[in-house]
Computed example of a mutant assay.
Amino acid sequence: MDDKSLMRAGLLVNPRSGQSSGKGLALADKLRNSSSVSVKVLERFDQLPHFIADMAKDGVTDLFISSGDGTVQAIQTELAEKRPFAKLPRLSLLPHGTTNMTAADLGFRHRSIDAQARFISTLDPEDLQARPTLRAVNPKDGNPRHGMFLGTGAVSEATLFCQRAFNAKGVKGSWATFSTLAGAVGRSLFTPANPADTTRFDRPFSIGIEADGRLISQGQQLLMLATTLEKLILGTKPFWGGTGGAIRTTVIPYPVPSIPRWLIPIMYGSETRKGPPGSASVAASALSISSPVSYVIDGEFFDAPEGEPLRVETGPVFTYVRG
Protein backbone atom coordinates (compact mmCIF):
# COMPACT_ATOMS: atom_id res chain seq x y z
CA MET A 1 0.00 0.00 0.00
CA ASP A 2 2.99 2.34 -0.06
CA ASP A 3 2.66 3.01 -3.80
CA LYS A 4 0.17 5.90 -4.06
CA SER A 5 -0.82 4.87 -7.58
CA LEU A 6 -2.25 1.65 -6.11
CA MET A 7 -4.14 3.36 -3.29
CA ARG A 8 -7.82 4.21 -3.33
CA ALA A 9 -9.98 5.64 -0.55
CA GLY A 10 -13.47 4.59 0.41
CA LEU A 11 -15.88 6.44 2.69
CA LEU A 12 -18.67 4.57 4.44
CA VAL A 13 -21.16 6.72 6.36
CA ASN A 14 -23.78 5.65 8.87
CA PRO A 15 -25.89 8.85 8.99
CA ARG A 16 -27.79 7.68 12.08
CA SER A 17 -24.65 7.60 14.22
CA GLY A 18 -24.27 10.50 16.60
CA GLN A 19 -28.02 11.19 16.76
CA SER A 20 -27.88 12.16 13.07
CA SER A 21 -25.29 14.90 13.62
CA GLY A 22 -24.92 15.37 9.87
CA LYS A 23 -21.11 15.26 9.91
CA GLY A 24 -20.87 12.09 7.86
CA LEU A 25 -23.35 13.29 5.27
CA ALA A 26 -21.53 16.63 4.98
CA LEU A 27 -18.28 14.77 4.33
CA ALA A 28 -19.98 12.48 1.80
CA ASP A 29 -21.34 15.51 -0.07
CA LYS A 30 -17.83 16.98 -0.37
CA LEU A 31 -16.42 13.74 -1.78
CA ARG A 32 -19.35 12.36 -3.76
CA ASN A 33 -18.08 13.64 -7.14
CA SER A 34 -14.46 12.64 -6.54
CA SER A 35 -13.27 10.00 -8.99
CA SER A 36 -10.64 8.85 -6.49
CA VAL A 37 -13.03 8.06 -3.62
CA SER A 38 -15.77 5.43 -3.36
CA VAL A 39 -18.61 6.86 -1.23
CA LYS A 40 -21.38 4.80 0.36
CA VAL A 41 -24.14 5.99 2.73
CA LEU A 42 -26.02 3.41 4.78
CA GLU A 43 -29.74 3.99 4.46
CA ARG A 44 -30.35 0.53 5.92
CA PHE A 45 -27.92 -1.55 7.93
CA ASP A 46 -28.51 -4.62 5.79
CA GLN A 47 -26.75 -2.76 2.96
CA LEU A 48 -23.42 -3.04 4.77
CA PRO A 49 -22.22 -6.39 3.31
CA HIS A 50 -23.07 -5.24 -0.23
CA PHE A 51 -21.33 -1.88 0.19
CA ILE A 52 -18.19 -3.52 1.55
CA ALA A 53 -18.19 -6.01 -1.34
CA ASP A 54 -18.55 -3.11 -3.80
CA MET A 55 -15.58 -1.35 -2.23
CA ALA A 56 -13.50 -4.49 -2.51
CA LYS A 57 -14.35 -4.62 -6.25
CA ASP A 58 -13.45 -0.92 -6.55
CA GLY A 59 -9.97 -1.67 -5.21
CA VAL A 60 -10.34 0.37 -2.02
CA THR A 61 -7.19 0.17 0.09
CA ASP A 62 -8.11 2.70 2.81
CA LEU A 63 -11.61 2.63 4.27
CA PHE A 64 -12.78 5.73 6.18
CA ILE A 65 -15.70 5.05 8.53
CA SER A 66 -18.05 7.80 9.70
CA SER A 67 -19.90 6.20 12.59
CA GLY A 68 -19.80 5.15 16.21
CA ASP A 69 -18.38 2.03 17.85
CA GLY A 70 -21.25 -0.26 16.86
CA THR A 71 -20.84 0.31 13.12
CA VAL A 72 -17.05 -0.04 13.38
CA GLN A 73 -17.55 -3.38 15.11
CA ALA A 74 -19.94 -4.56 12.38
CA ILE A 75 -17.48 -3.54 9.64
CA GLN A 76 -14.55 -5.23 11.37
CA THR A 77 -16.64 -8.37 11.71
CA GLU A 78 -17.65 -8.33 8.04
CA LEU A 79 -14.06 -7.81 6.90
CA ALA A 80 -12.58 -10.44 9.21
CA GLU A 81 -15.22 -13.14 8.82
CA LYS A 82 -16.23 -12.80 5.16
CA ARG A 83 -12.83 -11.67 3.81
CA PRO A 84 -14.18 -9.81 0.74
CA PHE A 85 -10.79 -8.10 0.28
CA ALA A 86 -7.73 -10.03 -0.85
CA LYS A 87 -5.84 -7.95 1.75
CA LEU A 88 -7.51 -6.23 4.68
CA PRO A 89 -7.93 -2.52 3.93
CA ARG A 90 -6.50 0.04 6.29
CA LEU A 91 -9.20 1.63 8.43
CA SER A 92 -9.66 5.22 9.51
CA LEU A 93 -12.20 5.92 12.23
CA LEU A 94 -13.96 9.28 12.01
CA PRO A 95 -15.53 9.98 15.44
CA HIS A 96 -18.99 11.01 14.22
CA GLY A 97 -20.99 8.58 16.37
CA THR A 98 -22.80 8.54 19.68
CA THR A 99 -20.05 6.50 21.33
CA ASN A 100 -16.50 6.67 19.99
CA MET A 101 -14.34 4.76 22.46
CA THR A 102 -12.44 2.95 19.71
CA ALA A 103 -11.89 6.18 17.79
CA ALA A 104 -10.67 7.92 20.95
CA ASP A 105 -7.74 5.49 20.98
CA LEU A 106 -7.23 4.72 17.29
CA GLY A 107 -9.24 7.33 15.42
CA PHE A 108 -8.41 9.98 12.82
CA ARG A 109 -6.89 13.03 14.50
CA HIS A 110 -8.27 15.81 12.27
CA ARG A 111 -11.78 16.83 13.38
CA SER A 112 -12.90 19.38 10.78
CA ILE A 113 -14.89 18.10 7.80
CA ASP A 114 -12.72 20.10 5.36
CA ALA A 115 -9.51 18.60 6.75
CA GLN A 116 -10.97 15.11 6.57
CA ALA A 117 -12.10 15.63 2.97
CA ARG A 118 -8.68 16.91 1.91
CA PHE A 119 -6.90 13.99 3.52
CA ILE A 120 -9.23 11.39 2.00
CA SER A 121 -8.77 12.97 -1.45
CA THR A 122 -4.97 13.06 -1.29
CA LEU A 123 -4.46 9.90 0.80
CA ASP A 124 -0.96 10.53 2.14
CA PRO A 125 -0.95 8.85 5.57
CA GLU A 126 1.95 9.32 7.94
CA ASP A 127 0.49 8.14 11.25
CA LEU A 128 -0.37 4.42 11.18
CA GLN A 129 -1.10 2.12 14.08
CA ALA A 130 -1.66 -1.64 14.09
CA ARG A 131 -3.98 -3.36 16.54
CA PRO A 132 -5.77 -6.74 16.65
CA THR A 133 -9.43 -7.17 17.38
CA LEU A 134 -10.78 -9.47 20.03
CA ARG A 135 -13.03 -12.13 18.52
CA ALA A 136 -16.07 -13.47 20.35
CA VAL A 137 -15.99 -16.99 18.93
CA ASN A 138 -19.27 -18.61 19.95
CA PRO A 139 -22.18 -16.22 20.61
CA LYS A 140 -25.55 -17.88 21.09
CA ASP A 141 -26.78 -16.76 17.65
CA GLY A 142 -23.81 -18.47 15.98
CA ASN A 143 -22.34 -15.24 14.58
CA PRO A 144 -18.78 -14.45 15.72
CA ARG A 145 -18.07 -10.79 16.43
CA HIS A 146 -14.90 -8.73 16.16
CA GLY A 147 -14.52 -5.70 18.40
CA MET A 148 -12.10 -3.83 20.62
CA PHE A 149 -13.91 -3.88 23.98
CA LEU A 150 -15.96 -6.57 25.70
CA GLY A 151 -17.52 -6.60 29.14
CA THR A 152 -20.03 -8.32 31.39
CA GLY A 153 -21.46 -7.95 34.87
CA ALA A 154 -21.76 -4.31 35.92
CA VAL A 155 -20.14 -3.26 32.60
CA SER A 156 -22.96 -4.57 30.42
CA GLU A 157 -25.65 -3.47 32.89
CA ALA A 158 -24.27 0.08 33.03
CA THR A 159 -23.87 0.24 29.24
CA LEU A 160 -27.50 -0.73 28.75
CA PHE A 161 -28.59 1.92 31.25
CA CYS A 162 -26.40 4.52 29.54
CA GLN A 163 -27.93 3.78 26.13
CA ARG A 164 -31.49 3.99 27.45
CA ALA A 165 -31.14 6.92 29.85
CA PHE A 166 -28.68 9.19 28.06
CA ASN A 167 -27.92 8.26 24.43
CA ALA A 168 -31.61 8.09 23.53
CA LYS A 169 -32.00 11.66 24.83
CA GLY A 170 -29.08 13.01 22.84
CA VAL A 171 -26.50 12.96 25.66
CA LYS A 172 -23.60 11.05 24.18
CA GLY A 173 -19.95 10.10 24.39
CA SER A 174 -17.94 10.88 27.50
CA TRP A 175 -20.71 12.95 29.09
CA ALA A 176 -23.12 10.02 29.08
CA THR A 177 -20.45 7.72 30.48
CA PHE A 178 -19.47 10.24 33.15
CA SER A 179 -23.09 10.69 34.20
CA THR A 180 -23.61 6.93 34.45
CA LEU A 181 -20.38 6.45 36.42
CA ALA A 182 -21.05 9.38 38.74
CA GLY A 183 -24.56 8.14 39.49
CA ALA A 184 -23.37 4.62 40.27
CA VAL A 185 -20.51 5.83 42.48
CA GLY A 186 -22.80 8.25 44.32
CA ARG A 187 -25.33 5.53 44.99
CA SER A 188 -22.57 3.25 46.28
CA LEU A 189 -21.27 5.94 48.62
CA PHE A 190 -24.56 7.05 50.12
CA THR A 191 -26.79 3.99 50.16
CA PRO A 192 -26.07 0.60 51.74
CA ALA A 193 -25.08 -2.26 49.47
CA ASN A 194 -27.98 -4.51 48.50
CA PRO A 195 -26.95 -7.57 46.46
CA ALA A 196 -30.59 -8.40 45.72
CA ASP A 197 -31.39 -4.99 44.17
CA THR A 198 -31.34 -5.62 40.41
CA THR A 199 -31.66 -1.88 39.69
CA ARG A 200 -28.09 -1.36 40.91
CA PHE A 201 -24.91 -1.90 38.90
CA ASP A 202 -22.89 -2.51 42.07
CA ARG A 203 -24.25 -5.96 42.79
CA PRO A 204 -22.63 -9.41 42.59
CA PHE A 205 -22.42 -11.45 39.41
CA SER A 206 -21.17 -15.03 39.32
CA ILE A 207 -18.34 -14.67 36.80
CA GLY A 208 -15.61 -17.20 36.04
CA ILE A 209 -12.65 -16.49 33.76
CA GLU A 210 -9.81 -18.54 32.32
CA ALA A 211 -7.01 -16.75 30.47
CA ASP A 212 -4.88 -18.91 28.16
CA GLY A 213 -6.18 -21.97 30.01
CA ARG A 214 -5.36 -20.65 33.49
CA LEU A 215 -8.11 -19.91 36.01
CA ILE A 216 -8.07 -16.19 36.84
CA SER A 217 -11.21 -15.78 38.90
CA GLN A 218 -14.28 -17.64 40.02
CA GLY A 219 -17.22 -16.55 42.17
CA GLN A 220 -18.90 -13.25 42.98
CA GLN A 221 -17.51 -10.39 40.90
CA LEU A 222 -18.59 -6.83 40.21
CA LEU A 223 -17.46 -6.73 36.60
CA MET A 224 -15.17 -8.11 33.94
CA LEU A 225 -13.76 -6.24 30.96
CA ALA A 226 -11.44 -7.17 28.12
CA THR A 227 -9.94 -4.95 25.45
CA THR A 228 -7.22 -4.58 22.83
CA LEU A 229 -7.32 -0.79 23.20
CA GLU A 230 -4.68 1.10 25.14
CA LYS A 231 -7.21 3.41 26.79
CA LEU A 232 -10.96 3.40 27.28
CA ILE A 233 -13.64 6.07 27.62
CA LEU A 234 -12.57 9.15 29.62
CA GLY A 235 -8.96 8.10 29.05
CA THR A 236 -9.15 5.35 31.66
CA LYS A 237 -6.68 2.46 31.78
CA PRO A 238 -8.25 -0.09 34.13
CA PHE A 239 -5.71 -2.84 33.49
CA TRP A 240 -2.29 -3.71 34.82
CA GLY A 241 -0.02 -6.70 35.26
CA GLY A 242 1.93 -6.83 32.02
CA THR A 243 1.41 -6.94 28.27
CA GLY A 244 2.18 -10.57 27.48
CA GLY A 245 -0.95 -10.94 25.34
CA ALA A 246 -3.02 -8.70 23.09
CA ILE A 247 -6.20 -8.89 25.21
CA ARG A 248 -6.00 -6.89 28.43
CA THR A 249 -8.46 -8.36 30.93
CA THR A 250 -9.51 -7.10 34.35
CA VAL A 251 -11.84 -8.54 36.96
CA ILE A 252 -13.07 -6.49 39.93
CA PRO A 253 -14.52 -8.47 42.87
CA TYR A 254 -17.75 -7.91 44.76
CA PRO A 255 -17.89 -6.13 47.05
CA VAL A 256 -15.15 -3.62 46.31
CA PRO A 257 -13.73 -2.86 49.78
CA SER A 258 -13.85 0.94 49.42
CA ILE A 259 -15.08 2.92 46.40
CA PRO A 260 -13.25 6.15 47.44
CA ARG A 261 -10.04 4.22 48.08
CA TRP A 262 -9.95 2.20 44.87
CA LEU A 263 -11.80 4.12 42.14
CA ILE A 264 -8.94 6.34 40.95
CA PRO A 265 -6.20 3.66 41.24
CA ILE A 266 -8.33 1.22 39.26
CA MET A 267 -9.11 3.75 36.54
CA TYR A 268 -5.84 5.64 36.22
CA GLY A 269 -3.10 3.84 38.14
CA SER A 270 0.27 2.75 36.78
CA GLU A 271 1.13 -0.56 35.18
CA THR A 272 2.62 -1.68 38.51
CA ARG A 273 -0.40 -0.74 40.64
CA LYS A 274 -2.17 -3.16 42.93
CA GLY A 275 -5.91 -3.56 42.65
CA PRO A 276 -8.36 -4.23 45.48
CA PRO A 277 -8.11 -7.63 47.18
CA GLY A 278 -9.57 -10.31 44.95
CA SER A 279 -9.10 -8.36 41.73
CA ALA A 280 -7.06 -9.64 38.80
CA SER A 281 -5.63 -8.08 35.66
CA VAL A 282 -3.80 -10.05 32.99
CA ALA A 283 -2.78 -9.92 29.34
CA ALA A 284 -3.76 -13.00 27.33
CA SER A 285 -4.32 -14.29 23.83
CA ALA A 286 -7.54 -16.19 24.61
CA LEU A 287 -10.28 -16.20 27.26
CA SER A 288 -13.08 -18.44 28.44
CA ILE A 289 -15.78 -16.52 30.34
CA SER A 290 -18.88 -17.62 32.24
CA SER A 291 -21.42 -14.97 33.24
CA PRO A 292 -25.10 -14.91 34.26
CA VAL A 293 -25.87 -11.77 32.22
CA SER A 294 -25.37 -10.66 28.63
CA TYR A 295 -22.09 -9.46 27.15
CA VAL A 296 -21.52 -6.16 25.43
CA ILE A 297 -19.02 -5.72 22.61
CA ASP A 298 -18.53 -2.14 21.43
CA GLY A 299 -22.10 -1.24 22.37
CA GLU A 300 -23.81 -4.38 20.99
CA PHE A 301 -25.33 -6.94 23.36
CA PHE A 302 -25.30 -10.70 22.87
CA ASP A 303 -25.44 -13.92 24.89
CA ALA A 304 -23.18 -16.94 25.19
CA PRO A 305 -24.50 -20.41 24.29
CA GLU A 306 -26.76 -21.98 26.90
CA GLY A 307 -24.66 -23.73 29.53
CA GLU A 308 -21.33 -22.91 27.84
CA PRO A 309 -18.68 -20.27 28.47
CA LEU A 310 -18.04 -17.56 25.94
CA ARG A 311 -14.76 -18.08 24.12
CA VAL A 312 -12.75 -15.04 23.10
CA GLU A 313 -9.57 -15.08 21.04
CA THR A 314 -7.18 -12.60 19.47
CA GLY A 315 -8.51 -11.54 16.09
CA PRO A 316 -6.70 -10.29 12.97
CA VAL A 317 -4.53 -7.19 13.06
CA PHE A 318 -5.99 -4.10 11.40
CA THR A 319 -3.94 -1.04 10.49
CA TYR A 320 -5.51 2.28 11.45
CA VAL A 321 -4.83 5.52 9.58
CA ARG A 322 -4.68 8.36 12.11
CA GLY A 323 -3.45 11.28 10.02
Score class of each variant (00 low, 15 high):
R203W: 11
I233N: 03
E313H: 08
A184L: 02
S288F: 11
T133F: 07
A246W: 00
G299D: 15
E271H: 15
S112H: 10
Y295L: 12
P195M: 05
Q163Y: 04
D141L: 02
V171E: 14
V321Y: 02
D105C: 06
G241V: 04
R145G: 13
A304Y: 14
I266S: 02
S34Q: 11
R214C: 05
T236C: 10
I209R: 09
V293E: 04
P238V: 10
A115D: 14
G219A: 08
A246M: 10
S179R: 14
R90A: 08
F85V: 08
A154H: 01
L189A: 01
I297M: 15
D141M: 04
G315P: 06
L42W: 01
V137R: 07
F119N: 03
H50C: 07
K57T: 13
S5Q: 14
S288A: 15
G24F: 11
P192I: 13
D124V: 14
I289H: 05
L310E: 04
S206W: 03
R311H: 11
L160C: 08
A211G: 02
S179I: 14
P144S: 13
P257Y: 07
Q129R: 07
M224V: 11
N167Y: 05
R248I: 04
L234R: 01
R111L: 15
L160Y: 08
P195K: 00
T191P: 08
Q218E: 14
F64L: 05
R109G: 02
D114F: 05
T98K: 06
H146T: 04
G22V: 12
A211V: 00
M55K: 09
A104K: 01
V321G: 02
V282M: 00
F161P: 07
T198Y: 13
E308K: 11
M101I: 09
P139W: 00
I297E: 13
T199P: 06
E157N: 15
G24P: 09
L79N: 03
L63C: 06
L88D: 01
R311T: 13
F166A: 04
E308A: 10
G213E: 06
S17Y: 02
F166K: 04
T249V: 06
R273T: 10
G22C: 11
I264K: 02
S121D: 12
G213P: 00
A168G: 15
S121I: 07
I65C: 00
A136C: 15
N194A: 02
K82I: 09
G269L: 13
P316D: 05
M55D: 10
S34F: 10
V41K: 05
M7T: 14
S21F: 07
F205P: 00
V251A: 08
